[in-house]
């Protein structure tokens, strides 16, 4: 009798365990369902409208703006990452770290407002340059954190070794650590590019959009993300199709960069 109760209790616990597992599987399904749905619609709705003439302007706008942004942000962000890594644990750096966190937690649209208030107003025009500045400020804290994480993950023994052999701190970092860090840092930069590429909100206030090729760096420019946003709000099905096509191109570009980044970091770990 007692044994039966015991077995029943165990069975009940087992059953509960199984139900919990089913619940978890359902949650896992819900996590991945949006991805498949988004990709399905982007591909099926974007495919027909691909290769429109206007897309090219936006593709180049996206590439130019992102590259300019990374030209500003990559050296700054990596340098900052080195600073955070070098000064880990010291008390003065907590202020800097807190400020870096502030910037990381700042909604990107605020960066757009401030760049509008400073760059757009003072140059007297919306521009590709202003857009790049806002993207640069946006990815800067991300790059710094990625750099620091990667430094911590892979090099402390290397640096200690160099220091033990009598190298100066700067030599240890520049001649021992940096060469080894090339690939991880490249991956960090690529991830930064991915983040910057898809960003839309600050560009509305800084680069405005352009139906033509930008006349220069100080001229309004269109990007894929802006094009998707504007076209999505159009009542015409033809224009909406362009939004989907833009989304397909943008996601394809991001996926390629993402896979390249993974490939590089895989090569690293081998």
């Amino acid at each position: 009798m007692k044994e039966e109760l015991f077995i029943r209790a165990i069975k009940k616990r087992k059953r509960r365990d199984q139900w919990f597992f089913v619940f978890l599987l359902v949650m896992g399904f819900f996590s991945l369902f949006p991805l498949f749905s988004v990709l399905y619609y982007v591909v099926s709705k974007g495919w027909p409208g691909l290769f429109a003439a206007n897309d090219l302007i936006s593709v180049f706008g996206t590439l130019e703006m992102t590259l300019f942004a990374l030209l500003f942000a990559a050296p700054l962000g990596i340098g900052l990452g080195f600073y955070l890594y070098e000064t880990r644990g010291t008390r003065t750096v907590t202020v800097i770290r807190f400020i870096a966190e502030l910037l990381a937690g700042m909604p990107s649209i605020l960066v757009g407002m401030v760049v509008y208030a400073i760059v757009v107003i003072s140059t007297g025009t919306f521009s590709l340059f202003a857009g790049s500045v806002s993207l640069a400020v946006f990815v800067l804290p991300f790059l710094a954190r990625e750099t620091e994480d990667r430094l911590i993950a892979s090099t402390s023994t290397l640096k200690e070794g160099a220091l033990a052999l009598g190298a100066s701190n700067s030599r240890a970092l520049l001649q021992m650590v940096l060469p080894v860090m090339k690939r991880p840092l490249l991956v960090a930069v690529l991830l930064g590019v991915i983040r910057a590429m898809g960003e839309t909100a600050p560009l509305i206030f800084t680069s405005l959009g352009n139906n033509f090729w930008p006349a220069g760096v100080f001229s309004p420019a269109s990007t894929l993300s802006l094009q998707i946003y504007f076209d999505a709000l159009s009542p015409y099905t033809g224009v909406q199709a362009q939004a989907w096509a833009g989304a397909l191109i943008l996601i394809a570009m991001i996926m390629i960069l993402f896979l390249v980044a993974r490939w590089i970091s895989k090569g690293e770990s081998k």
Binding site: I57, F60, L63
Partner: peptide, 14 residues
Amino acid sequence: SFLVSSCGIPATTS
């Protein structure tokens, strides 16, 4: 070089 070329392309292909 990519930056330079992408800046140059508009003038030639529009």
